[in-house]
Amino acid sequence: MRGISGLILAFALASVGCSSIASSAIATGPRRAPYAGPVRVVTSGQPVTGADLGIVEAHAAQTEANVETLVPVFVARVARLGGNVAVIDHVEARFDLLERMHAESYSYPCGFHATCVGTRWYPVHEEVMVLSMQGRAVAAPTGSLP
């Protein structure tokens, strides 16, 4: 029974795939209930009047490392801290070289009129871009938004 459920879990994970999107937040200000309303996004560095609730970070890699993917994740984190303004201070990319094993098939003559097929594995290095978005969650009084 445990084997079957393990297989089901493995199949579910394999079918869903692993996402590289992750986010985190550190509360530095007053604790607030999660905010369910719309959250303003400020990216241009303009000052925002309000209480800083915390520091927020979101990151993703490879095809998910883009602003379209990260901004909604960032905004959701801000809302969970109770903020109604998401201030994006930095968007940075870093690059890592990851080693992975690559399989290559090959064929060769083996014997009279016979061809054999083999597989060899060798390491390849792949460059991975990780995009990180850092900023703050701010609770601004309604009407004082910049």
Partner: peptide
Amino acid sequence: QAAESGGAAAASRPTPIPPV
């Protein structure tokens, strides 16, 4: 109106933004 985005509600609401 400012660009607004939200979690569950995600409804836009006019908000003044003066330029910097």
